[in-house]
């Protein structure tokens, strides 16, 4: 589990800086003309219930492998220059950062498309699970809310 900003695919306990991660990706090429980011954060309400705590777990190695496949496929299919995907695990409070995708390209159109596809694909194929704690107990979330 890497925590440096060198790797473009990371799963980590620690929070990340959106600004720092964008700056890292801006240095990838002088031909970048558009950057799209997706930031997923911990929300308070889920299915009408107030969440007090979130906890994420992953299948080490397989999760990183799937995220790298998404990165490679995004570059190939949408023609973006590069992409980084960072996902946090462990306990996460309401309002905190969970997942960040940064897509960089020559123009904005391909980065918007790549970013939207990548987060949907991440939720579909990457073995990461969310446990929500509410006033009525704890539950593993088993759909893509």
């Amino acid at each position: 589990m890497s925590t440096t900003t060198d790797s473009k695919i990371r799963i980590q306990l620690e929070d990340f800086s959106v600004t720092d991660e964008i700056e890292v990706m801006k240095k990838v090429s002088r031909n970048i003309g558009g950057i799209t980011t997706f930031l997923g954060t911990g929300r308070e309400m889920s299915k009408g219930e107030s969440i007090t705590k979130l906890n994420f777990e992953h299948y080490p190695k397989m999760a990183e492998k799937k995220m790298e496949e998404i990165r490679v496929q995004s570059i190939k299919d949408f023609g973006i220059i590069d992409m980084s995907i960072i996902h946090r695990i462990g306990p996460i409070d309401i309002g905190e950062n969970i997942v960040l995708i940064v897509a960089v390209g020559e123009h904005r159109a391909e980065t918007f498309k790549a970013c939207e596809w990548a987060i949907a694909e991440l939720k579909r194929t990457t073995p990461i699970w969310k446990r929500e704690t509410t006033s009525t107990g704890e539950v593993w979330v088993q759909d893509t809310p």
Partner: peptide, 29 residues
């Protein structure tokens, strides 16, 4: 999954393999 690749009902498991049982994913927000 078998050795970190998705498997199907007829996937063959060999000695030394790692088989993981994965509930539906819920990554991200």
């Amino acid at each position: 999954s078998v050795n970190e690749e998705m498997a199907s009902a007829d996937t063959i498991i060999h000695d030394g393999d790692e088989v993981a049982f994965l509930p539906p994913f819920s990554g991200g927000a």
